[in-house]
Amino acid sequence: MWNVQMVKDLRQFNVYIKTASKAIPHREELRKALSLWGTFRLGEKIPSLKLKELLGERTIAAVDGSRIEYASFYPYSLVLLRTLGKCTGREDLEKSKVITPLHAETAALVYKKKEKEGIGEEEAYRLYLKEELAHLEILTALEIAEKYKPCLLMLDGGFLLFDQFAEWRKLYKFCLENDIILVGIIEEVATSVLAKWLDLRLDHSLRIYDREILFGLLDKGEYLLFAADKNIKKNYHTVFARLGSLPQAIGCDFLAEQREKITQAMNLLYTLTPRHGQGIPLWLQITDAKVRLRKKETEKLIENCLEPELRELFFRANRERRAF
């Protein structure tokens, strides 16, 4: 299982990151420093009755997607994409797509991507899949927005994931025109902007990501809103918030034009988030759970739809037959 060298290496790594994490200033210092860049605010839970009053006939919506692969190895891959738009009290909206590089058309697109980005073919394929799912999500979001005109529309992930598609502009416009607050919920914050702003440096070359800075920084229900000219990415307004009990913060992307709606939106999100847990609004969690493609079901489905010989020919990897 393991050998002495492995243990040694891992212990060394432990020391390394420990040193690095010590370089992060204390909470109070950080808060003081960050308050120069933005403001700490406390979210408000809206009572159910008031919530109804506030929203009237309007609703809350969320869009999420799921991807699952049935494969032996590239290019013997069959990918199912599914997206779900869920609006409170309304019917769900579902979209799906099947992708395989065995398809000539797909192969051509992947090849184009490979040339453009200058990366390996398989990597290009992964990127292609990610974008396809995001694209499908945007299409779903647009349809949900047009169909139900919700008060708040949650996307799963930051805006950078979506804004490369033509439909993004459409969604953007539609939301502004119809007073739909668009928010991208980022469960795992992966940016590293704050360290730069705060001029934090480490002795080693280790980078400090925003995640480490945000950890434990906020009180329960608190969020950090930066000044209008301080944008983490492009001209979107990113808010870091701790809506649940866990000390890790999530990110919320808002459109610059909707800055004055942020307080209302944050209160809504806080209201819809269980007190205990990782701080993701329940509605998004439910959407996520409903859209998720599960391995077993997918396998069953594919096995039902593909003839056994073809399945054997294309998708059965030798390693599946290993005895040990």
Binding site: L51, T59, R90, W283, I286
Partner: peptide, 24 residues
Amino acid sequence: KSSILVDQEVVASLSSLGYNLEEE
């Protein structure tokens, strides 16, 4: 371990928005 439903307030909020978790 997951405790997504412990918070009855959120459930009540959703229900006032026309979504009943019990229907799931």
